[in-house]
Design a protein around this nucleic acid. Structure first.
Lengths: 111, 111
DNA sequence: TCTTTGCTTAAGTGATGGCTTGACTATAAG
DNA sequence: CTTATAGTCAAGCCATCACTTAAGCAAAGA
């Protein structure tokens, strides 16, 4: 399971690594959107948007469904939460070590 | 300020987007490390590691200091926290909308 | 039925980014 | 002083990736 979730995390941060995809998430955070409705604001071809959406979907950050001829995209908050947790875990581990070290040194400066 | 922090976030997620850099953070989360000490475990040239470290430093995720001839790297937890908050904000905005919508529809399925 | 709209796929292009090698600097050790 | 170590900088190579164009397809609308 650690392996599976590792790959999931890899895909999530990989998806999050592109500025355009982050802007898509930004748009989606205020509500579901059709693929073509993202094309305008982001000044990109529908084909380009679609490629990003597919990447986001593979990562689990976005879920899509097609009704009629329009595909609607929405955020899947679990993946967002997974990324948060990954960061929080590393931070916790680091801060724990940092505190120990500070205590050991008799505690100077607390950045 | 929103502009400055936007750029900061961009750099952070950009840095986080590379698997090798995530592995470096992984190593650093258990304590400070010299550049060359990362080279072995990651099976990369020191030069390659350095490039990643420089990217991480530009993003604020890592702070480094050189004493003598060895440069030591450590995590800067603030940037990690900033990334967490970015994700949490988007998620909150989405969930708020989602809940409203669910309530409006008389509430069926609660995924 | 004919046309428009919205998406989908494939192919191609240009740029970016990660990595290596090789040369160089500065500190530490013998 | 000589040698080894740790990092730094600059080119250059290659793969990946984002984006475009073009062609195709299915659903809606006139």
């Amino acid at each position: 399971m650690a392996d599976r979730s590792n790959r999931a995390i890899e895909r999530i941060f990989d998806a999050l690594g592109d500025p355009t995809r982050r802007r898509i998430l930004e748009h989606l955070s205020s509500g579901p959107r059709a693929v073509s409705s993202l094309s305008g604001p982001l000044k990109l071809t529908v084909a380009a948007i679609l490629q990003h959406v597919q990447c986001l979907e593979r990562s689990g950050l976005v879920r899509t469904a097609k009704v009629g001829r329009v595909r609607t995209c929405e955020i899947e908050s679990k993946a967002l939460a997974d990324a948060e947790r990954w960061l929080a875990d590393r931070r916790a581990r680091w801060e724990e070590n940092y505190d120990k070290l500070a205590a050991l040194l008799g505690d100077e400066d607390g950045a």
